[in-house]
Design a protein around this nucleic acid. Sequence first.
DNA 1: TATTGTTATACTCTATAACTATA
DNA 2: TATAGTTATAGAGTATAACAATA
Lengths: 156, 156
Amino acid sequence: MATAAPDTTQRVPVGALLARLGQESNARLRRSLRPLDLRAQEFIALKQLELLGRCSQSELADAVGVDYSNLATLAGGLCDSGLIVRGRDGADRRRYVLELTAAGRRLVARADEAIAAGERELLGALEEGDREQLHALLQRVADGAELCPTASACTE
Amino acid sequence: MATAAPDTTQRVPVGALLARLGQESNARLRRSLRPLDLRAQEFIALKQLELLGRCSQSELADAVGVDYSNLATLAGGLCDSGLIVRGRDGADRRRYVLELTAAGRRLVARADEAIAAGERELLGALEEGDREQLHALLQRVADGAELCPTASACTE
DNA sequence: TATTGTTATACTCTATAACTATA
DNA sequence: TATAGTTATAGAGTATAACAATA
C-alpha cells in the first residue's frame, strides 16, 4: 500500500506543485518570447545549445526533453532562420553537428533579458537565499532523474 | 539593464529548471493516469475539486490554471462520465456549482496511488528532509504568485 | 454594461510509427 | 542489425474571439 503520512492527505503533492509551477513558468516564458517571434521550445533548444556548445541532434533532444522526431523539425526551422548551423559529422556521417550562429547567440542574449523580469516576478515570494536553495534542490532533482540540463552534469 | 551575477551565466536559470521539471512531472502524470483513462488536466481538476469542495467553474479554472473556455469542455466531459455533478447556483443562476460524486472520489483515490510511485522516483535524489524543504519552497512560490493551489490559501 | 459560461478555432506541445541513410 | 535523422500524423494543452444568458 502507499505510505500515508497523517497530514499529507490535505495538501497538494510535490509532483502536482511542480507540474503547476512548471506550467506557469512555461506560460510566462511563451509570453516573454512572443515579441521575439520565438517559441518556448526553440528558446530552450537554443539556450541548451549555448551551454553544451557543439553537439548532435540526439544529444540536444535528450538534454532538452524533446522527442528526436520533433527536434528534427525544430532544428530544421532554426537552421532556416539562420540561428544555428548544421553540418555532417566527419567521423560518423549519419550525425549532424549543431552549433549556434552569431545571430543565434545575439537572439539568446535578447531573450534572456526578456524572460528575466517574468522569472523575478514568479519567484517574488522568495528571498535571495531561498531562491538559491530552491535552485539547488531543483538542480539535484534534475540531475538525479538524468534530465541532464547542465553541461557539467553531461558526462556521457 | 539586467542584473548580471558573475557565475549565473553558465547555469540553467530557475525558471528553465521549473519548466523542465514541470514538463517531466506532467509526462509522468500522464503515463500514470493513462491506464485509468484519465487525462492530466482531468485529474488535476478533480483533485483540486476534492480540496476545494463545492465551487464554480471559474473558481476551479483559476485554481487549476486552465482557461475558462477549456474548463467548460473539461467539466462537461467529467459530468458526462459521472465523476462530477453540475447544478446552477440558486443565488446567481449564471454560475454552475461543481461537486465531486462518489465515483469521482473513488477514482481520485485510485489515481493518487497510481501517481505516487512516479513521484517518488522523480524525487529519488532527495532525502526526506530535502523533499519537505522543496515542498515548502514551491508552496510559497505558488501562494506568492496567487496560483492558489491550496484550499487554505484561497481567501477570496 | 459586466459577468458566467459556451462554442469554435488556431496554435503549440507530446507521442508514435514508418521510413531513409549510414554504421 | 543497429543507430541518426526525417516525415507524417494523432492527441493533448494553450490561447483568443465571438456569442448567449443572467446580473
